[in-house]
Write a protein that binds this DNA or RNA. Structure first.
Lengths: 121, 121
DNA sequence: GCAATATGAAACCATTTGGTTTCCTATAAT
DNA sequence: ATTATAGGAAACCAAATGGTTTCATATTGC
């Protein structure tokens, strides 16, 4: 149980790595913005950018790994769309800091405390 | 005006790059968590980690560049603390996606629209 | 069947990243 | 004055990033 909890925690950390890294690139944020308007295929997504289609394709893969984007393959067309579900772990993580920034300190301190108990490393 | 608006926007984008990148590393997130408990000097911050002080120092520099952490030099001691102010741009950015994920689509579409008008690129 | 299209795979390249170790410089403390 | 302490700087290294180009593979349209 403690071991599975640790495993789950490690996975959540990985997800945070993936999501934050995915968001740290302007091109990828632009792709998300475009996808927010509606689904699109890869070529369509790549068109507005001053870089090769392959480069955009790689960015899409990063977004997919972070599970921010999903892809439905239909014949030769790959239709990409924003993942419907919010990244809960990210929201949760940021929530603690928002609490800190807004009402100064309490919530995050509690978070860290809980964290220690939960057998971090 | 439109040129200065563009410049400001580019700066905001850079900030997003910096902040998201800073958050994409587990060590750095752990540092933030530690700092949320209270200010600390570099050696103190480095102690719990299985890496050199210099490595932690570099991570701190990344957090500083993203303006998530500030440093007050007092004699030979560098006292680091969480930046008091929330990264507004980040909050704003995420806010739009939160809106999308929660009430599906509307807010983000509006965001993108406004974005186009505001002379992106 | 054949040409055009949508896409990925592989190999490559320069730069950045996350680490290290080995110095060097201030400031304290005794 | 000497020694211990807090810290950065520089040089280095392996691995990951963000690009590229070239080639390969399905699918679709005629």
């Amino acid at each position: 149980m403690s071991s599975s909890a640790r495993a789950k925690r490690a996975a959540a950390e990985d997800r945070l790595d993936l999501v934050f890294h995915a968001l740290s690139d302007r091109t990828r944020r632009d792709l998300l913005a475009r996808l927010a308007v509606g689904p699109a295929m890869v070529t369509e997504l790549a068109a507005p950018f001053a870089m090769s289609r392959i480069a955009v394709s790689k960015h899409l893969k990063v977004l997919e790994r972070a599970r921010l984007v999903v892809r439905a393959i239909d014949g030769r067309v790959h239709r990409c769309s924003l993942a419907a579900a919010a990244p809960q772990d990210v929201e949760r993580w940021l929530g603690h800091y928002r609490a800190f920034w807004h009402d100064t300190l309490g919530a995050l301190a509690r978070y860290v405390e809980r964290d220690e108990k939960n057998g971090r490393e």
